[in-house]
Design a protein around this nucleic acid. Structure first.
Lengths: 253, 253
DNA sequence: CGCCGTATTGAAGTCTTTCAACGGACGTGG
DNA sequence: CCACGTCCGTTGAAAGACTTCAATACGGCG
């Protein structure tokens, strides 16, 4: 808060982060509507990686983290889930990741049997599921791009921007991003350390991009600059497509 | 439930690096069997990111790269495709990546319309497609883990090991990994630079793990060591799963 | 045989991590 | 209500890993 940093930022432009998970289509949501809600307290685990995949879930309220632990103890978070997101839609016999509640979470659960029955019978559900999976795949690719090429500042900005967009979509009024997860969670999600996340956050605050609002929220002051720093700008895309094309034309013979 | 879990770990360890794409189930393969083959020369592009997604493909022969270009020119390769792999299975209206032939490639193509018709009608195809998508998702998650946490040596070893496993599955006899892609491709896939890939390769050769076999292949001399270095070892998994469990038990109340 | 693109190697630089200490918030208990 | 302890987050300094820049070597193809 008081420390001022003299480091200048190297700002470059980068490409697009697609929205990670969209609200499940009405048709999918309806599957869960009649299921009873279940509650999980902060830190509680819905299922472990390796558990038999018996259920799929709809998050009603709260935030979850999707975790994978490596043999040597390193932890990776491959995603966060919020109200409206779906969890566990896969056709593998066992879960390939652990799902933990970050805060108090309410979910509805559907047995996989019931789900697959619906899937077989309903011509409405099926495309919705395909689309859901396609969206998840696109999000995964975006995350790969982030982890492959982006530096700490770009990663954090991308993350904050995505969260902001989600909150706005969900009807948020003020440009405030809630961060129920710890810095460690964010670090493990962005492939950084807790210290780097902290330092980068401070740097962004000093630049006037955001201001901390308590410990688990930030207010975005300059959304445009945030987007710039996220490197998701798309103004160059056409040129790149063109050069790419011509190079190909050239090669093609 | 915990006992269950431990059992699971002891008997069969999770594939830390899941095989990216398995050979398509016979049912999916059969969709393409009657399509004519098409050829693409090295460097030629099947489709661009952003193109309307009109077709899905089965790779008959050769190797492709899945590419995303960022606005500032940085390039990310999110995957390689080999004979037997499927390409373009998604339910988005436009492709979200570019597909380029690395060497001379033969494919069979199916119009998306035909594909979706089959999907709607065949009770055999549908689950195969779901499984295919789930496999791709698992591969994407593994790649995220790689990019999040692994260092250069672990990344390269993971990559080589996966390629080796694929070649062995495909009936390869000698422990030789063919690398039709350039070092730049590998670098862009692993989130490294060409120089780091080169140096790491040299280091592995010096350790006696592998030996170069021409410029576009390596012979694996010590597969066990390669697996060790890949960081996908699973000998500690049980312990970690246990600590994970007990921590949860502790938290759970 | 010689050229050009690709790969390797070296040295310097940069960014992130690691190690270490401090500070602040929250919850518990006095 | 305040004190205190603990956990989480912040900050600093040093070390490390990878990148960048630059030069050289290799190998396929004309």
């Amino acid at each position: 808060m008081e420390a001022d940093m003299l480091m200048e930022s190297t700002t470059r432009s980068r490409p697009a982060m697609a929205p990670s998970q969209v609200t499940p289509p009405a048709s999918l949501h309806s599957l869960f509507a009649r299921q009873p809600v279940e509650n999980f307290v902060s830190g509680q685990i819905l299922f472990f990686e390796g558990d038999e995949a018996k259920s799929i879930f709809e998050v009603v309220e709260g935030t979850l983290r999707i975790v994978r632990i490596l043999p040597d103890g390193r932890r990776v978070i491959t995603g966060f889930l919020h109200a409206g997101d779906l969890l566990g839609i896969s056709f593998k016999s066992h879960y390939i990741y652990t799902a933990e509640a970050i805060n108090n979470v309410t979910i509805r659960r559907l047995s996989r049997r019931a789900f697959e029955t619906e899937l077989a019978n309903s011509d409405e559900i099926r495309p919705a599921v395909f689309h859901q999976m396609s969206d998840e795949m696109a999000a995964a690719q975006d995350q790969m791009v982030l982890l492959s090429t982006k530096n700490a500042e770009e990663r954090l900005c991308s993350f904050l921007l995505k969260e902001l967009q989600r909150e706005m979509r969900a009807g948020g009024l003020a440009p405030i991003v809630k961060l129920p997860m710890t810095r460690l969670d964010i670090a493990d999600y962005l492939g950084l350390t807790i210290e780097t996340v902290s330092r980068t956050m401070t740097k962004l605050a000093n630049k006037g991009v955001l201001t901390p609002s308590g410990r688990h929220a930030v207010e975005i002051l300059r959304r445009g600059m945030l987007a710039q720093l996220a490197g998701d700008g798309d103004e160059c895309e056409i040129e790149w497509r063109m050069t790419n094309t011509s190079r190909e034309e050239f090669r093609r013979h």
